[in-house]
Each structure stands twice: as C-alpha cells, then as structure tokens.
Amino acid sequence: MNVTLTVNGETLSLDVPPSTTLLDLLRDRLSLHGTKEYCHSGVCGACTVLADGKAVSSCSMLAGQVEGADVLTIEGLTPDEGLHPIQQAFVDNFGLQCGYCTPGMILLAKALLDENPAPTREEIIRYMGGNICRCTGYAGILRSVEAAVKERGSWS
C-alpha cells in the first residue's frame, strides 16, 4: 500500500506492506537507524519519535496510521553542523552512557520543552518517567533536561 508522509522535512511517498510499523519504515525503508527497538510494545521508549510534534512509540503504530503525518526523528533534529541544544545538554551533562535510549530520550525531552518551555523538576520526572534507560540511573538525564530548560530561551 502507499503511504505519504513527511519525515524530517522531506515529503515521501512509499509503497510498503500494511504490516509495516512506523519503526520498520524508518529503520528498514529509510535507513534512519537512530530510532531504536527494544520491547516493541510501547513501554521502553527507545523507538520514540515525534509525529505532528507529539512523542509516540514508533513500534506501536502502523505505517498507515501516519499517512499525512509530519515525523521527526533524531536525524531530523540534528543540525547539519554540531548538535541541537538538547543533544548538547545530554553530552555536557553525562546524560548518556551506552547511548541506545538516547535518541528517544532526547526526542521526548524535545516534546516536553515544546509543550512546556519551563517545566519544574517534578514535571520533567513525570513526563520523562516513561522512557527506560538502563545505564545512567536517570540522574544524568534529569540534569541534561534541566540544563536544556535553562538554555531554552536561547533557541527556537
């Protein structure tokens, strides 16, 4: 079947089997490997992308469901040179170790800051609480998001 959607600013028309998930489409068809897979059941958040600005689990959506959607992956967030301020905050504040959950965490943080430019610590924890990291114990991630919040005024 045919799916037309925008991925990282580029509008694409793709022919895919109906059983293709958004995750499959991104990883296998578009080779956008920054979106990761672990639990494949909407729990862990490794496959988090933004669809029309909202954080979603790309493993739990069929390609047909994103017809016409505007999808942002970690590749689309990353500028041509350097890093997005949220990415830089994760680097500077040791918000990552193995890096596997990191793209999903960064995109979730992006969705949070787009919705709520000045979240409190409690709001950050409540919002980010769904994404799993096995390495950092989350302290570095919280520090990173808080640092990104502080810098929020300086980027659009």
Partner: peptide, 9 residues
Amino acid sequence: VANVRVRNV
C-alpha cells in the same frame, strides 16, 4: 494512563 507516548496515541 501508562506513559505520555501511549496517551498521545
């Protein structure tokens, strides 16, 4: 309900 990703969808 669950996490924000689930609630969005």
